[in-house]
Simulated scan of single mutants.
Amino acid sequence: AFVAALIAGEKAAFHEWEAAPYFEGCLPVEVMAERGPETLRHGPLKPFGLTDPHAPERKPYAVVQLRQDNKLGTLFNMVGFQTKLKHGEQLRVFRTIPGLQHAEFARLGGVHRNTFLNSPKLLDASLRLAAMPRLRFSGQITGCEGYVESAAIGLLAGRFAAAERLGEPIALPPATTAHGALLNHITGGHVDAIEAGPRSFQPMNVNFGLFPPLAEGIRRAGAARTLAKKQALSARALGDLEIWIGRHPAAAAE
């Protein structure tokens, strides 16, 4: 009933200037619901791994994560519930969730718009504007997604600016590290075309798909292979990062 209500609920219309594709990692809750009745419980309502200590044999079908938003514990955020539902519809639909029938909503949801540069075409490898190198960009506007990722790109921009000011060579982080993989996506990740047709640069969280492949394959199958691959990529990244930040100057010189 909840999924059906989400889909049927009245949505606010987009303005002409708002017509932009959604970021896959931050979809409105009703858009996810439209993809199938099971989609939400494999996304923001994922219950897997949660056990009720009072009834461990009873597994929840779906859960809503409430994140405390103030010190008093009187405000809680419904995680993953960005939406284009009109305010009246939000009150009606969200109160169909068990436990929220009598909830007071201090602030209702919405959808935010991200503005970002077409960085692969506009920025150089050290995040400078190619047409005006005295300007350097960092953070979310460069085309990364996430708080940690934005901070990481800000850190790199600061290091690059400091090195340039001191007349030192700019050392880019290895592409095998999370910093380097994300930087490489931002400054060189534009895909002009794919088999399905034209495609443009889109913001992205850091993920293992951005890392260069391992030199040697993983001789395992299924979930064990996936886990071993991620562990190997992580170990390689940490080792290369230590060299980059100068903890092993002899190894770096080699």
Rank of each mutant, 00 (worst) to 15 (best):
G239S: 14
I97W: 11
T51M: 12
P98K: 13
H15I: 05
H102G: 06
G197I: 09
G154P: 06
C144P: 07
D240C: 11
K229G: 03
F116T: 00
A228D: 06
M78C: 09
T226W: 03
E145V: 01
I243S: 11
A232K: 11
A4R: 13
L233D: 07
N114Y: 06
E30I: 03
G80I: 07
F160K: 02
A13L: 00
A175W: 02
H87T: 12
P203R: 05
D52S: 01
A250F: 15
P60G: 06
E18I: 00
Q82G: 11
N70A: 05
L233A: 04
A221Y: 07
Y147A: 01
I218W: 08
A12P: 01
P60C: 05
G110L: 03
L183D: 07
R247S: 09
G167D: 06
H87G: 11
L50H: 13
A221L: 14
R225A: 08
N114W: 10
E38R: 07
A251I: 15
H102E: 14
G222E: 00
K71A: 10
V31W: 03
A178G: 07
A151C: 12
K121M: 13
E149Y: 04
A223M: 14
P56C: 08
L233T: 07
S138P: 02
L233I: 11
F160N: 08
N184W: 02
H112P: 00
V93D: 07
H15S: 05
F94L: 15
T115E: 10
A250L: 13
L214M: 08
S119G: 04
L182G: 04
A161S: 12
R113L: 12
L129E: 02
F105S: 10
Q101A: 15
P21Q: 09
L227M: 09
L100D: 09
A131E: 13
L75T: 00
A157H: 04
G146Y: 06
N70I: 03
Q82S: 14
A228E: 05
L85V: 08
E10S: 13
A196W: 04
G197M: 14
A252S: 14
E18P: 01
P44Y: 06
A20N: 02
R128E: 01
R220G: 15
E216W: 05
R199C: 04
A62N: 04
E10Q: 13
A163S: 13
Y61V: 15
F48M: 14
R58G: 04
A215K: 11
E89H: 08
T176D: 10
E254D: 14
G154F: 12
G154S: 10
S234C: 10
C26R: 13
V63Q: 02
